[in-house]
Amino acid sequence: MPSKLTKVALVVGSVLGVAMSSMASAQAEVISMPSHEKSFASPIGGDIMVGSRDETINRIAPLNMVGTTREAFVTTTAYGQINAAATGKLKVGYHVGCAVTIGTGTLGATPDLIIPIPLNGPNGPNGPVGPNGPNGNNYPNQPNFPNFPNYPNRPNWPNWPNANWNNGNGGNGNGNNGNGNNGNGNNVNNVPILVNPNPVVTLNLQAGEVAEVELAEKEMIPGKLIQIVVRDFHIKVDTCTGPVTLRQFAYVYATSPEVDDSGAVFGDPTWL
C-alpha cells in the first residue's frame, strides 16, 4: 500500500503532468480568423455599422515554461460607421475564459508520533504485566507452579530474583531492567520515538471565469468610417488549468440628444 507521501507525490505529479502536457501543446502557431460585419437600422435615423477583419492569433509557448500560463499575440482591425446625426465610440477587445483557476495553495504536514513498546519493557508482551512475563498467563512452565495465580508472597518465591524480567534479572521481582535490586540492563526510556511527517499539499481550485480585455477605443465622427488597428497585442493568462478560450468583440456606441444606440460583432472562439 503506498504511503501518504507517495500519494501526495502522485497527486502533485498528476497536476504537473497535466500542466506540462498543456504547455507542450502551446507551441508557436499563427491562425487567421474570419471577418465579421453587421449593420443596424437605428431609431436615431439612418444606420450604424460595426465589423472586424484581419484577425490573427499567434499562440506562443509561455516564457516561464509553465503549463498553467498561456500567451498569445493578437492582431486585428475593428471598424465602424454611424450614418446618423449622432456621435459615438468604437471599442475593440477580447473575452478571455479560463476553465479552472488555481488559487492559493498550502503545503503542510499532519505528523504522527510512533512510540515503540519494547518486547521486554514494562508494558511489552515479555514484561512483568505482559502475557509472556512473570505475571502473565504464558509465563514458561506456569502450570507447573503450584497455584501460581494465587501463590502468596509471590515476590518471595524461591529463586524469584533470577526470573527473566525486562531484558535482565530483576531483583525481588522489581528489577529496573537489569540485575539485582537496582538493575543495570537496557533502559526502555531510551527507545527512540519515530515521526511520520504525513506531508499535505492543498491546491485551491476555483470555478473558471470570463474576463473582458479591452484593447482600444476611439471617438467616432458621423458619416465617417472609423478604424482601430491593433498589431501584436500581448495577452497572458496565469494560474489556469484546462482550456483557455479567446473571443474578439467590437462595439459601436451611438449617442444623440434623444437616443443611445449600440451594435456589436463577435469573432469565432479559439483556444490558447
Rank of each mutant, 00 (worst) to 15 (best):
E29I: 06
S35Y: 11
N64W: 15
V30T: 09
I44V: 02
T56R: 14
Q27I: 07
S35L: 10
R53S: 11
M49D: 04
S39A: 08
E55K: 15
I44P: 00
Q27E: 04
M33S: 04
R53W: 08
N64R: 15
G45Y: 01
D54F: 14
H36Y: 12
S32A: 06
S42G: 00
A61Q: 12
G46F: 00
A41L: 02
T56M: 10
S52Y: 12
N64C: 06
P34W: 07
Q27C: 07
H36A: 10
A41M: 02
N58V: 02
N58K: 13
G46M: 01
M33D: 04
S35D: 13
G45F: 03
E37W: 04
T56E: 03
S52K: 14
E29M: 14
A61E: 01
S52L: 13
I60L: 14
F40V: 09
I60C: 11
K38W: 07
S42M: 00
V50E: 01
M49R: 15
E55D: 04
S35F: 11
M33A: 04
N64L: 13
E37Q: 10
A41W: 01
E29Q: 14
N64A: 11
F40M: 08
N64H: 12
M65S: 13
M33Q: 13
L63T: 00
F40H: 08
M65I: 05
G46Q: 01
I60V: 09
T56W: 04
Q27S: 08
E29S: 14
V50C: 00
S52P: 11
I57Y: 06
V30L: 13
S39T: 12
G51N: 10
F40Q: 07
S32V: 14
I57S: 05
R59P: 04
N64Y: 15
I48Y: 04
E29T: 06
